[in-house]
Structures are given as structure tokens and as C-alpha cells.
Design a protein around this nucleic acid. Sequence first.
RNA 1: GCAGCAGUAGCUCAGUUGGUUAGAGCACUAGUUUGUGGAACUAGGGGUCGGUGGUUCGAAUCCACCCUGCUGUACCA
Length: 444
Amino acid sequence: MTKDKKNKPSKELPIGFVDRKEKELLVRDFIISNIREIMIKYGFQYLETPSFEYSDSIGKFLPDKDRPDEGVFSFKDDSKWLSLRYDLTAPLARYVAKNYLEIPKPFKRYQLGTVWRNEKPGPGRFREFLQFDADFVGAKSLQADAELCVMISEILEKSGLTKSDYIIKISSRKITESLFKKINIKDNDQKLTALRALDKIERLGWEEVKKLLGEGRKDKSGDFTRGAKLKAKDIETIEETLKKKIPETEDLVEIFKIFKDYNFNNFEFDPSIIRGLEYYTGAIFEVNLKFDVTNNKGQAIQFGSIGGGGRYDNLVNNFGNYDAPATGISIGLDRLVYALMQKKEFKVKQSKPVVICVIDKNLMKEYINVQAILRNADVSSEIYSGEGKLKKQMEYANKIKSPAVILYGENEIKSGKPTLRNLSSGKELSIEIKELVNEIKKII
RNA sequence: GCAGCAGUAGCUCAGUUGGUUAGAGCACUAGUUUGUGGAACUAGGGGUCGGUGGUUCGAAUCCACCCUGCUGUACCA
């Protein structure tokens, strides 16, 4: 070992990136297997697109030009800029535009993939995370929007949530659109600021949101946020209209009717959900958890939604050639995993290997033989591959939560009966090799 | 990004108004047990006190800047 610490490589990870351990990965795999099963059942195609796209394909040509160059990781390759994808919807629009003539219309596809965002990370929020995304492209029917909600619901419940654990909140861009028309806001910046303010009703309450619609607001730390500077009269109109909580737009009326046909009722109309800015054109959904998620100090943390989506009728058209009204929904899988792991009753089991202790290296042939017998019977097992004495081997088996160890040394070889030690009870059995599999199966 | 608070061993933390060689618990290593884990006991390793510069006879402690984390806020396609 070198003592010189100065010129050693860093053990630290880049900010916002994390190592993910087995416990978490098992839960994630479990959710993924549920997703795939349900996607097949609902008739979606599986698709994978690359991690990198040309920056303009996933940003500059989108209607949302609010911050086209920020929030992504990019580099210049020869003359063109490439970016790591920040979601799976923009690459889908690119894929559809590129392959429009060959794909079925409507095109129903799902995708699981890592996405990257160059933003400030927080608890449960990373710069690299796994997203699940399902979309209908070329589907004008609102049945598609409704079915996405039903489908997400099925995934969540199959993964261990109950109806009282989550709710799908629904609204429509058409509501705010007509509202802005009514009070005659034309300035785009003002619209955006107002939308952002409305997005915070749940968290801040109407009083604070009204400040944001007006001059602005100071937060707890004393920082000031500039407001939308709307007239007091207009702010009142907005408050009155949204507080009524009546889904007056045609699209919502239709979707709620379809929900009834599906016998789906774990949703709620909430005009305060906004989701993104200029991207969506119609219905918008957000999947919210109803139980508290806590950090490692036991404090409830601001978790936000675990997913959402909506209708984006113009996205594919931005590539120029084809009109493809679309609707989709995504889930941040890591957030769902994090939330699910906090539910006490939730556990994913994986059997750990039985450890065959190496009492005498000259007997390796015997150990390999025992291992082959176990593995042929699909019993997870391993020959201790470290250097230590028996005590160390036992400590190892204990640490990896192995159910049992097999002791097969000089004494046992003589009688032809290995010793099987149950690591939870500490009991030892001296048994014939051919009985090993049966005895181990009793333990695990 | 902005604002507030924080950073001492792998982890959780103590360290009095600046004063000798910076501590504890857990974890780790070795031994008590030359073939037996989870308990106990004994011994041991491990820190440039987040970094750099400054004030001082003397800095973990005071000052400045930087880095990192947490919380709020902004942004989140």
C-alpha cells in the first residue's frame, strides 16, 4: 500500500451519481418484471433507443424552448453536439419521425432506460436514473389517455402498493389555456411564470401562490422569488375558477366517462397540476404517493410525484413531416423503489449460497464434487475462495447471510459423511452426500 | 442558480473561553478457541479535524476564499 495520499485517484462519485446495492436492485428487478408482464398484456412493443442523441433531435426542435441547452450533459463530436437523453419521450418522437412509414399507427411502445439530467440533486433525486415510459403515438382517442392511467395503476398495485397508497391526479392544459385567454394574458414569460406559480398550490397554498402570481414572494431562508405581476382582479378570477374544481373541458369530461367504463376510480381532478411547460397540449396526469417517505434520519422528505405524463399532440410534428397526436406516461423507477422499500411489509427474497468450507486444500476435488451436486440440484452454493482459516470462513458465511456451511475435512472424508451446519440454528448434522440436497432444501 | 445551516476515524458523534501526544461507541484486525459464525473478554490498526491561505508563541477551535452535504427556494423538457 502506498502512503502517498496526494496522488491517488478519488474514491468519490461525481455529484448526483450513486452506487446501487443489491437490496435496491432486487426491488427494481421485481418492479421491472411486473412492468414487462403488464406491457405485454396491454399490447405494447418493446423499444430501445441509444443513450446519446444529437442535441437538436431531443431539444432544439421541441416546442419547449424555455431552456433548450441547460439541464443536459453534452459534448461536441466533430462538428455536432451530442447529449445524453434526459427522458424517453423526446427520443420516441425522433424514432417515430424517422420510421413513420414502417411503424403501425397507432404505435404503442414501452421503454425502460437510464436518463441523465444535469440538475441539482436532492434526496431521491439523482443525475442518473432509470425511467419507464409507455406511449400511444398516432392515437387521438382519449381512451388511450384513460388506459395509461389504468395501466400505471395496475403496475403499482402489482408491485405492492394499495389503492390508498397512491392517487393519480388529472387535469388538462386546456383549462389553463382558456383561463389565460379569458383574462387576456398574451406575454409568454408571464404565462410561464403563472403556470409555475399554479404548480405550487399543493405545496405552498393559495395565499403564497397569489403572491407569486402578483409581485413575488420571500421563502423561509429570506430568498425572494419574482412573481408573474398579474393584476389583482385577474388573480382573483384564476383563484375562483380553479377553486371550483369542476372539470369543464371536453377532454376531461370524456376521460372521466371512460374511467367509469373501466371501473377505475383511484384518480382525482386537480387543476393545480401543471407538469412541464409548453410540452403538453391536453390531459396531464401525475402519480402521487399518499404515504410519507422518510430519509435516513427518519424525517419526512419532500418526494414529489413518482411519475406522470400527458397528451402531446404536436411533438412528432416538430420534426416536420408527420402529424402524430400522442399521449404517454413515465415513472421514475428509482423513486418508486425507494418508496416501496420503506413499506415495512415489503421484502424481496433471494436465496444466498451455501458455503463449502475449505478445510484442507488438498481435498479441493471433493469440494468441487459437492458443489457440482448442489448446483445440479439448483441449490446456490460456493466454495470459499478466500484465504482464512475455518473461523474466518464461518464469519464470511455469516456475513453474506448464507443459510448453511458444509464441513468436509479429514474426519468427514473417513466416514464419507460431510457435516452440514445450519447457520441460523447452529445445529450440525452428519449426513450422507446424497442426502445433502434434501437437508439443505429443508433449511432454505 | 439563490439563501440558511453544517463538515472531527469506515459509520454515529464528543471535544469546555484557542494550550502538551485529538477521544468514545459501533465496525475492522489479531488473540482467548492450532476444525466452527452470531455473545463476552484482551490487545491492535485506522484521523494532515473537508481543502487552501491568513491571524497567533500556539488553531479542530478565530478570519477569508473554495469544495462537499442538508434544508428551503428556483428550474426540472
